[in-house]
Amino acid sequence: MKQITQEHKLADVLHGNYMLIPVVNRCGIRLGFGEKTIGAVCAERGVDPEFLVAVMNAFNAENYSAAKKLGPKHVHMIVQYLKKTHASYRRNQIPAIEASIEVLIQSAVENNPRLALVRKFFRQYKKELFLHLKREETVTFPYIESVYKGFMSGGAGKTKRTGRRKYSMSVYEEEHDNMDEKLNDLKNILIKYITGDFNDTVCGTIVFELFRLEKDLQDHTQIEDHILMPLVKTMEAELTARGKA
């Protein structure tokens, strides 16, 4: 697909790739915007159009160089966007898949131990994912917000006073694991090895939802690793430089 620009009609862009609907929602734009262009919808809803266009292009092309235009002033927005995404995993996507797994188990004519394994696997995955999200929300994002504030206020942050701080982007880089590999394994197992007498439509829906969640998580991780991390790293360096001057 060609590059999306602010002059495109938002509706056309979503017709071209419906996977962008949650992206638009998480930026605070609801459907029902008529014939308006991206620029016009953003102006109306107070969304930075550069940010939305960059994220949509990155998702579309699966190429995050499109997001290079984003600078320090976008950091707060990126974090807000990531938090909204976390909330949607927690409140919608994960519970929906969990519920479908229960429906699948109910649909089995007889007790099927394979389905019980699917449930167990997904519960374990959910636990790990929620820990990952919580760690980012309680440690990573607050740290990034403080760097952002320090950077924007023109000060040197706390770097000067405390010298080396405990948490930094390099710690995040090291501890940040991707959460989509296990999902990939689960859907692979469902496709290849889960047999028995159960509702095939429900099973198909679960696999479909796993594909969708996996793609969503990959994009989410890409933003964290390839947009947010490098951006905040340059800000950290700048703050350190300011502290020395």
Binding site: D185, L186, N188, I189
Partner: peptide
């Protein structure tokens, strides 16, 4: 061969088989 990367995934495969 299996397309399964994680230890949890491999464990599930082993249980299923």
């Amino acid at each position: 061969k299996l397309g399964i990367k994680t230890v949890s995934g491999l464990t599930m495969y082993a249980l299923l088989h």
